[in-house]
Amino acid sequence: MEKSFLIIGAGEVGLAMLNSLYDYQANHEPQLQIGVLVQPLADSIAKVKNNSRFVNIRVESLDLVNESIQNLIAVFKKYDTVICCSGFSTGNGMQVKITRAVLDAGVRRYVPWQFGVDYDKIGRNSAQPSFDEQLDVRALLRAQHNTRWIIVSTGMITSFLFREDFGVVSLAEKKVSALGDWQHSLTLTSCEDIGNLTIEILFHQPEILDQVVFIAGDTLTFEEIANQLKGLFSTEFDRKLRDIPQLEKELKDNPEDVFSRYRLVFTNPGVSWPMLETFNHQNNIPTVNVATWIRKNLLNSML
């Protein structure tokens, strides 16, 4: 198996991916070659180079937005596997640009930035226009046979659920807002589990190729989320239903608000799947459920 890996991005998911790759290297594959592509900013470069864990890491410094595809190709050609963790923050069209560069570089395996919902099931013209670009990426990958690909579907990143500006769980106001219906469910996965499971998938034998692989830390209804918060914090949380007509009105009244788009799109089918159907369940790999994530990341700081 080829043993050179490039992680694009060193944000929350990118760092989790790097940590998991270094853990795997320490336990299984001492000869891995690992690189990371970051913005040409002193802070971005230092965050990686000053991390004592990342021994012998190759830092590729490129501005994804303004760099030519030819220069991206020149970097990508050095690696057998490219894992994109740049997220949506790089702007419209960037995931297609990166994917085209990966394909033109002849990279053997590509894990695109698809760490989210089941975009095939949601389909085009949803409330979140950036999801259409995710489908464009899938179309590019499926239309060719030179670069092998793996899409890792994770559901919502667990930490996103607890953003106050997302408007679903407010710890400050002790309030939970259900999107669409109290029995509607979300699949949630922590960044650490996204990193760990993606690396497990890449090294799995027999090799997994040209597939959408579903993982999950937890799948819960909004009612179950509210009940867990009540039990963990030993206090009532105010419960508010934001049904689909209300969410559609909120988006119509504020069409530029990205969180209004996310709240509406997460009422769709395709944002959750049963734990029994996940790669981690089928391979007996433990993951962090929502209650455990809350205890570790929120509960101690609130008490």
Rank of each mutant, 00 (worst) to 15 (best):
V212E: 12
Q128C: 13
P206I: 08
A178N: 00
E192V: 12
E164R: 09
K174Q: 13
T219P: 05
A216H: 01
F160V: 13
T235E: 12
V176C: 02
Y119Q: 05
L188M: 15
Q211I: 02
E192K: 13
D132L: 11
L202N: 03
S159M: 09
E192Q: 14
A127V: 07
F233K: 01
Q134E: 08
N227W: 05
F115A: 04
D181G: 06
A127P: 06
T189G: 09
S185I: 06
T221G: 02
C191F: 13
Q128G: 07
N227T: 09
F233S: 04
I150E: 04
Q114K: 06
D132F: 11
I122F: 05
N125T: 08
V117F: 10
R148F: 14
R148C: 15
G231V: 06
R124I: 13
I157H: 08
H204E: 09
R124K: 15
E200I: 04
E223D: 11
L171T: 00
E224A: 12
S190M: 03
Q134C: 15
V212N: 11
V213E: 01
T158S: 15
E200S: 15
W182H: 03
L220P: 03
R142V: 12
G123K: 08
T219D: 00
Q211D: 11
D165W: 01
Q114S: 13
T158F: 04
T187N: 07
Q134M: 13
S159W: 10
I208A: 06
I199T: 09
L229F: 02
T221V: 03
H184D: 06
S126P: 10
H204I: 03
E236I: 02
I157W: 10
L220V: 06
R163H: 08
L220Q: 09
Q211K: 14
F166C: 01
D132V: 09
C191G: 13
N125G: 12
T154E: 04
L179H: 00
V152W: 06
K230Q: 12
S126W: 07
G167I: 00
S234C: 08
L202P: 03
Q144S: 14
V213I: 12
E192S: 14
C191N: 14
R163K: 11
I201T: 07
I122N: 02
I150L: 15
W182P: 01
I201H: 06
I225D: 01
S234F: 05
D210H: 10
S159P: 06
A178S: 06
A143K: 15
E236P: 05
D210A: 07
S177P: 00
L220F: 03
Q211T: 10
F131L: 15
D136S: 15
S234G: 07
Q205W: 10
S185Y: 06
G195A: 07
L161E: 03
L229N: 01
S159C: 08
Q183M: 13
L209K: 13
E192T: 15
F162P: 03
E200M: 13
F166S: 00
A216F: 02
E223H: 10
A172Y: 07
F115V: 04
G116E: 00
L229P: 00
G123P: 04
T235W: 02
L232M: 08
L179P: 01
N227E: 11
I199N: 02
S159N: 15
N196V: 13
T147D: 11
L197R: 05
V117H: 07
P206K: 14
L135H: 10
A216W: 00
E223N: 12
L141S: 14
R124H: 13
D136E: 14
D136F: 09
W182F: 09
T154Y: 05
S130L: 14
V152M: 09
